[in-house]
């Protein structure tokens, strides 16, 4: 007998949650305890009184599993609202990455040139290294990081994505 896997879809969920101890553990742990995937997760306080946080989770699963994930998130007491941006319609996704490269001569020039094309900013420089800051959709950052491997990539830090619905409404 072999274990079967089903075809998965990528979904971006945003959660409005109470900003209190344990909320992140509750949500992240629910994903592990029920066998759901987390591709990325971001969390930050978004309200003036620091009472509310917004969590953006990128997950993968077959459609019925995505539906269950949303229902299970909604079941948690500190979770007030769950929006599936992927289902909700047009939305923007952005991620920030810091990319360190090191090298000399042509390699260094090429890294700068590529960074310029991708609109990455230099936020640190030494005679043999740069740190670039780049924002964009996950695909753009993936491509940029792949290119940097050719020109002396040292390390990468990524925030994971945040997303909002397009237009004037709130998600």
């Amino acid at each position: 007998m072999h274990i079967k896997e089903e075809v998965s879809e990528r979904h971006v969920l945003t959660l409005t949650v109470d900003n209190e101890a344990g909320t992140l553990a509750r949500i992240a742990g629910m994903f592990t305890s029920r066998g759901y995937n987390i591709d990325s997760l971001t969390v930050a306080d978004i309200s003036e009184d620091h009472a509310t946080s917004r969590i953006t989770i990128v997950t993968k699963g077959p459609p019925p599993v995505i539906d269950q994930i949303i229902a299970q998130c909604e079941r948690l007491v500190p979770v007030h609202k769950v929006t599936d941006l992927t289902e909700a319609g047009p939305h923007v996704e952005r991620e920030l990455a810091l990319v360190k490269v090191s090298g000399a001569g042509d390699q260094r020039v090429e890294a700068m040139r590529l960074a310029d094309i991708y609109r990455a900013r230099v936020i640190d420089a030494t005679v043999n290294s740069f740190i670039f800051e780049i924002t964009g959709g996950p695909d753009k950052i993936d491509t940029f990081v792949t290119l940097m491997r050719e020109v002396g990539l040292v390390e990468v830090g990524r925030t994971g994505i945040v997303g909002l619905m397009r237009g004037s409404g709130a998600s």
Binding site: P64, D67, Q68, A71, R75
Partner: peptide
């Protein structure tokens, strides 16, 4: 009463 019970195993 629990939305997560609906469509969990049987549609």
């Amino acid at each position: 009463i629990d939305r997560s019970s609906i469509n969990k195993t049987v549609r």
